[in-house]
């Protein structure tokens, strides 16, 4: 019962054979070779597997790969094709991360927020990343970096 699905991952067209029970997360990691979405809880609680699905953040562990037929998937690798985004730069500069495991998901959740609200409040940033669990940082350094990145604006880098 394999299905061949065609989807766009980070700007590249992919055709992948999947079984109905395979999640998008498994297929991205094992069959597309994109490893930034992490396996943290596999039930939608932790946000480590966050990807952008037609521009909206979703948990890749809660999406069956067969559902992704015809859709556009963006991961951390995809938003920094042309160099780091301002957000990534600020997170590096302000050491807004520790173990780094949640960072890909957080960057994508914030990326979605900044597309919709380029000048968010601290509470809006917290709301946007509240589904991305981070056990290390205490979140404040991340919120600071987001606000700093928003202040500077995306320039021409999106």
């Amino acid at each position: 019962m394999k299905h061949t699905i065609e989807m766009n991952v980070n700007g590249e067209a992919w055709a992948v054979d999947v079984a109905p029970g395979e999640t998008l997360l498994e297929v991205l990691r094992e069959k597309v070779g994109v490893k930034s979405p992490k396996i943290g809880c596999e039930r939608g609680d932790c946000g480590s597997c966050t990807v952008l699905y037609d521009g909206k953040s979703v948990r890749a562990c809660l999406v069956l790969a067969v559902e992704a037929e015809g859709h556009e998937i963006t991961t951390l690798e995809g938003i920094s094709h042309d160099g780091l985004t301002v957000l990534q730069e600020k997170m590096v500069e302000l050491s807004s991360f520790q173990c780094g495991f949640c960072a890909p998901g957080i960057v994508l959740s914030v990326h979605e927020l900044l597309q919709e609200r380029p000048d968010p409040s601290a509470d809006e940033v917290k709301e946007a990343i509240s589904g991305n669990l981070c056990r290390c940082t205490g979140y404040d350094p991340i919120v600071d970096a987001v606000l700093e990145a928003a202040r500077i604006g995306p320039g021409d880098r999106g």
């Binding site: 939608g44 699905y53 909206k56 979703v58 999406v63 709301e127 589904g131």
Partner: peptide
Amino acid sequence: VASVGVRNR
């Protein structure tokens, strides 16, 4: 309900 990434779905 949950958080953005779940509410989007």
